[in-house]
């Protein structure tokens, strides 16, 4: 019995060059936004929520498209996105704890 991994040619998991380029542009735009927040010295719970949301959104693009987990067995994108969500949420929680201290 052959495994599906050794049965080429497989369906493409890697999308098109246009899609990859648009995602790159979105990632760069999001990075500029994060940098701008830093340069302005913006702070506070809303800004931290914004920073973590941007990080999560960027991570989602990397995980689903660049890592090509969009077409992987569901367990894999769920684990990666779950990790991203958990870490960003814990950072947010720690920030909130710092405010209360």
């Amino acid at each position: 019995m052959q495994s599906s991994l050794s049965s080429p040619p497989h369906a493409s998991s890697h999308g098109t060059s246009n899609r990859a380029a648009i995602i790159w542009a979105a990632l760069i735009f999001a990075t500029m936004l994060t940098w701008l927040v830093g340069e302005r010295g913006d702070a506070g719970p809303a800004i931290t929520a914004l920073l973590m949301t941007i990080a999560f959104a960027k991570g989602t693009l990397i995980i689903l498209d660049y890592m090509a987990l969009r077409r992987a067995p569901l367990m894999w994108p769920l684990i990666a996105l779950g990790w991203m969500l958990l870490v960003c949420s814990m950072i947010g929680l720690a920030y909130w704890k710092g405010l209360a201290a």
Binding site: V37, M52, G59
Partner: peptide
């Protein structure tokens, strides 16, 4: 390589920007 990128996407706002 994408994993190396992914962790930096959290590291940068966390250490350099969040305050």
């Amino acid at each position: 390589w994408h994993m190396v990128d992914l962790v930096w996407l959290i590291l940068f706002p966390l250490i350099y920007v969040m305050r």
